[in-house]
């Protein structure tokens, strides 16, 4: 019998069923960041943990194929650049750096609080990507190789 990477069939099936639900919950937390507890950081962590589930259940090779790690790295760098560009846009609009430059809307509505939801989304991407990449890199470290001292 061919030896498979990752965990057993049960774990794989459960992961396949739940991973999108977890990601959806992460998006919910990110999008409601200006209304409820959570926000970019909390939601990003949840998304990263969903990816981590896949990594644990299916192993490194499948995850690399599924998520395209090099793409995630680009996305991580891009998110900070977007953050800074959004901050500079406020400067161009005649406001101070990172200042809110669009309408604030009504309190307790989903589309409110000006640029804060946008920043939340960017931070969510950044946190999800960097947290997952940290785990990815640490999981790739091998203790066996290397020379004797």
């Amino acid at each position: 019998m061919k030896r498979q990477t990752g965990m057993t069939l049960i774990v794989k099936t459960i992961t396949r069923l739940t991973v999108w639900l977890i990601i959806l919950y992460g998006f919910y937390i990110i999008l409601h960041g200006h209304l409820t507890p959570g926000g970019g950081f909390g939601g990003g962590v949840i998304i990263a943990l969903a990816f981590l589930n896949v990594l644990l259940a299916y192993g490194r090779e499948f995850t690399d194929k599924w998520l395209k790690i090099s793409f995630l790295e680009k996305l991580e760098s891009l998110s900070i650049i977007l953050f800074l560009l959004l901050g500079i846009t406020a400067l161009l609009a005649g406001k101070l750096f990172l200042e809110n430059f669009i309408g604030k809307g009504h309190l307790y509505h989903l589309l409110s609080a000006g640029t804060i939801p946008v920043f939340n989304i960017i931070i969510g991407i950044k946190v999800a990507m960097s947290l997952f990449l940290v785990i990815w890199i640490l999981s790739g470290l091998k203790l066996e190789e290397g020379e004797e001292a």
Binding site: E73, K74, S77, L78, I80, L84, G87, I88, L91, F97
Partner: peptide, 20 residues
């Protein structure tokens, strides 16, 4: 004032975006 921080931060992530 913010540009003292924006310029190097932006460059750092621009470099890592362009990559290897």
């Amino acid at each position: 004032l913010p540009f003292y921080i924006i310029i190097p931060l932006f460059t750092a992530f621009l470099i890592s975006l362009i990559g290897g």
